[in-house]
C-alpha cells in the first residue's frame, strides 16, 4: 500500500512543475522511509533526483512500490491545486492508478493511470567537488534571467571568495558578481578557482520552483557537471547539468 498526505498541494505543485519541465516521466520509488526518484532528461544533459523523507508528510504509510508517472498529466492535475488544499497521494493497486486527491472543503479525486517504468531507475553518480556556493535562490534566479537577455549559455566561475555568472553575446555582455560579504551569499567554500559553462535554458528550468526565501547549493568544478540542491516544502531536489566545453 501507499498513502501519503502533504500539508500543501500548492507547494508540491512547484516540485511537479520543476520535474515536468525537465522530464517526460518519472518512476517514484516508495518505501517506509519516504519517496525517491531519479531520472535523466531525454537528451541526457540533465539529471533530476527527488527525495521526500517521510517526515515531510503529514501522514505516511507505504510498502515498497514503483510508481511510474507521466509528468505532463500529473502537472495538469497539480495545476488545479488551490491555496488551502491538502494533497493525498494514494496507490490503487487493483486499477493500477495513482489517486491524486485535493482535500479542503471536500475531496476532489483524480485517478492518474500509471506507466510501467520498472527497471528504468537511474543511478546517481557520486562526483567530487571542491567548490560549494550557498546562495539565496532569488538572487541566483534573477542573475540567470539577466544572463538570458544576452546569451543562451553562461560561464560560472568560483574562487574562495567570489562567485560569478557571465554571459557573452555578440555585442553585449553581462556579469553577476557575488562576494562572500554580499547578502545573497550564505557561504562560499573552495580552495581553488574553477569555471564551467552551462546551457541557460536548462538552468532556468532547474530553478523554476525556486522562490524568495529558498536557499540553493551549487557545486562547481572545472568543465564538470553542475550539481544544484534545494528544498521545496521538505522535498529535497538535486540536479546535475552537463557542461558545455570548447573543442
Amino acid at each position: 500500500m501507499f498513502k501519503a498526505k502533504l500539508e500543501s498541494a500548492k507547494e508540491f505543485k512547484k516540485v511537479v512543475d520543476t520535474m515536468a519541465t525537465l522530464l517526460d516521466e518519472i518512476c517514484l520509488q516508495v518505501n517506509e522511509e519516504g519517496v525517491r526518484a531519479a531520472a535523466m532528461d531525454p537528451s541526457h544533459v540533465a539529471l533530476l533526483s527527488l527525495n521526500i523523507p517521510r517526515i515531510a508528510f503529514e501522514d505516511y504509510q507505504a510498502d515498497e512500490h514503483e510508481i511510474g508517472i507521466e509528468l505532463e498529466a500529473f502537472k495538469k492535475i497539480m495545476n488545479r491545486a488551490k491555496a488551502k488544499d491538502k494533497l493525498i497521494l494514494e496507490l490503487d493497486e487493483e486499477r493500477n492508478r495513482l489517486n491524486v486527491i485535493f482535500e479542503n472543503q471536500g475531496k476532489r479525486k483524480f485517478s492518474l493511470s500509471l506507466l510501467d517504468l520498472s527497471g528504468a531507475t537511474t543511478k546517481v553518480p557520486e562526483l567530487e567537488y571542491h567548490n560549494v556556493i550557498t546562495i539565496k535562490g532569488d538572487a541566483l534566479k534573477e542573475a540567470l534571467k539577466d544572463a538570458d537577455l544576452i546569451s543562451d549559455h553562461v560561464i560560472m566561475r568560483a574562487s574562495p571568495y567570489e562567485f560569478k555568472i557571465e554571459a557573452k553575446g555578440d555585442l553585449n555582455d553581462f556579469t553577476a558578481e557575488f562576494s562572500s560579504e554580499d547578502d545573497a551569499i550564505i557561504s562560499i567554500e573552495g580552495e581553488e578557482e574553477v569555471k564551467s559553462a552551462f546551457n541557460l535554458e536548462y538552468l532556468l528550468d532547474m530553478v523554476k520552483g525556486v522562490s524568495k526565501g529558498d536557499i540553493v547549493k551549487l557545486y562547481l568544478g572545472n568543465d564538470m557537471p553542475l550539481k544544484m540542491e534545494y528544498s521545496l516544502a521538505g522535498c529535497e531536489l538535486m540536479f546535475l547539468l552537463a557542461p558545455r566545453i570548447e573543442e
Binding site: 541526457h44 546535475l240 552537463a242 557542461p243 558545455r244 566545453i245 573543442e247
Partner: peptide, 11 residues
Amino acid sequence: QEKQLTLDNFF
C-alpha cells in the same frame, strides 16, 4: 567551437 556534453561522459 563549443560542444554540449552529456552526463554519460561523466558516468
